[in-house]
Simulated scan of single mutants.
Amino acid sequence: MRIRKFAAIDIGSNAIRLLVANVIEQEGKEPKFKKSSLVRVPIRLGQDVFTNGEISKINIDRMTNAMKSYRLLMDVHGVEMYMACATSAMRDAKNGEAVVERIKKKADIKIDIIDGKREAQIIASTDLHNVIAKEKDYLYVDVGGGSTELTIFSNGKIKTSRSFKLGTVRLLNEMITDDDWKAFEKWIKRNTKDLKRLSLIGSGGNINKLYKMSGTTIGEPLSYIYLNAQYQFLQSLSYEERISELGLNPDRADVIIPATRIYLSACKWSGARKIFVPKIGLSDGIIKTLFFETSKKDKSASNILSF
Score class of each variant (00 low, 15 high):
1 M>H: 12
1 M>N: 08
5 K>N: 13
6 F>V: 08
7 A>C: 01
7 A>M: 02
8 A>E: 12
10 D>W: 09
11 I>N: 06
14 N>K: 01
17 R>Q: 13
22 N>R: 13
22 N>D: 14
23 V>P: 04
23 V>S: 06
23 V>F: 10
24 I>Q: 03
25 E>T: 03
27 E>P: 15
27 E>N: 14
29 K>W: 08
31 P>K: 07
31 P>M: 11
34 K>Y: 10
36 S>Q: 14
38 L>P: 01
43 I>A: 12
46 G>N: 02
47 Q>V: 15
50 F>K: 03
51 T>M: 05
52 N>W: 10
52 N>F: 14
53 G>L: 09
54 E>L: 11
58 I>K: 11
60 I>Q: 09
71 R>P: 06
79 V>W: 03
80 E>C: 11
81 M>A: 15
81 M>T: 15
82 Y>V: 13
84 A>T: 12
90 M>W: 03
93 A>S: 11
97 E>C: 10
100 V>R: 11
103 I>S: 03
104 K>T: 14
106 K>C: 05
108 D>E: 10
112 D>M: 10
113 I>F: 05
114 I>T: 14
116 G>A: 07
116 G>D: 06
120 A>R: 02
120 A>Y: 08
122 I>T: 10
128 L>K: 04
130 N>P: 03
131 V>S: 05
135 E>P: 14
136 K>Y: 06
136 K>V: 07
137 D>C: 09
137 D>G: 09
139 L>C: 06
141 V>F: 07
143 V>L: 00
145 G>E: 02
148 T>R: 00
148 T>V: 06
149 E>Q: 14
151 T>L: 09
152 I>P: 05
155 N>K: 09
157 K>T: 13
159 K>C: 10
161 S>T: 13
162 R>L: 06
163 S>H: 13
163 S>G: 12
167 G>E: 01
170 R>A: 00
174 E>D: 15
175 M>W: 07
177 T>K: 03
182 K>R: 11
183 A>S: 05
184 F>E: 02
186 K>G: 03
189 K>D: 04
194 D>P: 06
200 L>D: 05
201 I>V: 12
203 S>V: 12
203 S>M: 02
207 I>K: 00
209 K>C: 09
210 L>G: 01
210 L>Q: 01
210 L>E: 00
211 Y>H: 11
211 Y>V: 14
214 S>K: 12
219 G>W: 07
221 P>F: 04
221 P>N: 07
225 I>V: 15
233 F>V: 02
234 L>N: 04
235 Q>S: 02
235 Q>M: 04
235 Q>L: 06
235 Q>R: 04
239 Y>Q: 02
240 E>S: 07
245 E>N: 13
245 E>A: 13
252 R>F: 01
253 A>T: 08
253 A>K: 03
255 V>N: 00
257 I>R: 00
258 P>D: 00
261 R>H: 01
268 K>S: 04
280 I>A: 06
285 G>M: 14
285 G>V: 12
286 I>C: 12
287 I>P: 11
290 L>G: 05
292 F>G: 10
294 T>M: 07
295 S>G: 05
296 K>E: 10
300 S>I: 15
305 L>H: 04
